[in-house]
Design a protein around this nucleic acid. Sequence first.
DNA 1: TTGTATGCGTTATCAG
DNA 2: CTGATAACGCATACAA
Lengths: 342, 342
Amino acid sequence: MGKTRSAPTLNDVAKAAGVSTATVSRCLNSPERVVESTRKRVMQAVESLGYTPNFAARVMAANRSFTIGAIIPTMDNAIFARGLQEFQDQLRESGYTLLVSSSAYDPEVEREQIRTLVARGADGLLLIGYARDAEIYNYLEQHQIPSLVAWSYDPRVQRPSVGFSNTAAMGELARKVILTGHRQIAMISGKTKGNDRAQSRVEGVRLAMTENSLDPDTLTLIETTYEIEKGAEALRKLMNLSPRPTVVICGNDVLAAGALREARNLGIQVPEQLSITGFDDIELAEIVSPSLTTVHVPHREMGRKAAQELVEMVEGRSEGRSVCIDTRMVVRHSLAGPPDLP
Amino acid sequence: MGKTRSAPTLNDVAKAAGVSTATVSRCLNSPERVVESTRKRVMQAVESLGYTPNFAARVMAANRSFTIGAIIPTMDNAIFARGLQEFQDQLRESGYTLLVSSSAYDPEVEREQIRTLVARGADGLLLIGYARDAEIYNYLEQHQIPSLVAWSYDPRVQRPSVGFSNTAAMGELARKVILTGHRQIAMISGKTKGNDRAQSRVEGVRLAMTENSLDPDTLTLIETTYEIEKGAEALRKLMNLSPRPTVVICGNDVLAAGALREARNLGIQVPEQLSITGFDDIELAEIVSPSLTTVHVPHREMGRKAAQELVEMVEGRSEGRSVCIDTRMVVRHSLAGPPDLP
DNA sequence: TTGTATGCGTTATCAG
DNA sequence: CTGATAACGCATACAA
């Protein structure tokens, strides 16, 4: 167990290069402010010592952490993974590191994680959806932490966001469903409480019904957590109803996949006897059989744009703009006309 | 734009409570070392000021960050998500925060991310698989950063790991495949270069063949990246071979799902005309149709145990133990006997 | 049990 | 263009 030298510091580099720590620091942070000759010498020392700046010290001195925090509802399925991956890659390019937490859709947990992230000096925060206590937003404002909402976009809300209109997107799908001839409509939604995406998607369906002279109150709605099992469970319940729905609109692809699986187990032909639709267009949607008619959300684009905007905000170049991402319906095989269209 | 007060510091709390900063610090870190009465007073001040310790300062002073880093190959599919979620939850219970990066299966990127994580003061690192340059391990040792390997377990390697034997797990599956009557065996593997999990899985198949008097050199092997599309592509190539394989063993469920989809597109009946197997048993495996025969990996258990062990290591209570997690084969519908078994 | 004083590694300000 | 030096907020050894 020999004595191990610990990480070299600015001081070590300075000594090795025969300059002051200030100069070394400058070489690293604003190289143009130091002459070629000394810079070269310094960089060589940095290289040969394998120097890496101490992050905590840097944060303390500069009062910036080059860290962006993100709190997502779950890491458990692909829905957020893809967008976040792109978000992270884009951040990295701008010199930031991403710190992710997942809240398990629990507002209390989210609150705590936001505090942790702020305590860790996050320069900015990415939040999913608008819906959360005003207290949290106040807290962020007090601490001067720029925050950006993603996955939702609503022009009525005065808060920077990079997302899409869940209402409009689901509305388009529902209109298509109705146009296809369905009248007995059921929906398996995620829990709407504290989840504006889920709420808006339900609203989208209701709006489409109203527009087409269907009573939105006749929508059979089941709320559940976003798990495959739950989607299956919900479908089972729906199939015991009479009259049976001819179409089940699901709040996302995961629920739809569960519903699809259960339909198969029950010996119900999709789409001949029952239509099922999803939302998100994760890879799953194309793999299940029959493939899912769903709404495509450009997650990567959203992640990239969110990163760009948040960095602008953090660096004081933007007060917080909002970006609306376009979604589009993807028609595949799980949607067809109702079984006994006269 | 009013002047916003910035976060309260230890000093503020100390003043408010009428004690020294040292006492406040103690109240927070080792409450038992301060009398009830003062502690109560201090805690009250902490509460009312909404004090949260400044993370960077804490790291600098204590020379510990309560941060664990993890570098995973990809966040893009469910394979690592589930285990990591549990890893994170368990860490949180022990008071640690998780910092995740993904390397996109690129050793160079991984190297850089490890350095970043270390510079950020990570107390310990979780790495996926053993295979990486000795230089990296040396670097970690030099910096005294405990590291734990996950997703792989090999008793021959002297390095703490919490994982499973990829060879044995895939071997079991391959034995089953052979026992079912298959002789024309093909495999779609992930890129084996720098990926010991992929390597071991191929090895597992070869071992099983050898054990059953099949020449392992007759294994048709395609290596590709872990994407659905690539699985599909590979299957297409395999189906043009003659003689055609009667079974395609895939390196993971994602590749298998792609292969399955392509088989369907080509009008090939699975499992009647072709058997396909996966690995990992992510949710996908049960959802696709036919459902996948695969190897179940208890990702959550692995994540939890990895967190426990790594914390022990970081806190100096363990020199680094290894834990072998049990996998089990899951037989579903995608595997059957070869089409023209005499 | 509590307070004092010092150091952690950078950045940034201000002279030179 | 470069060098001293003062913060930054906290933990801890040491003193009281």
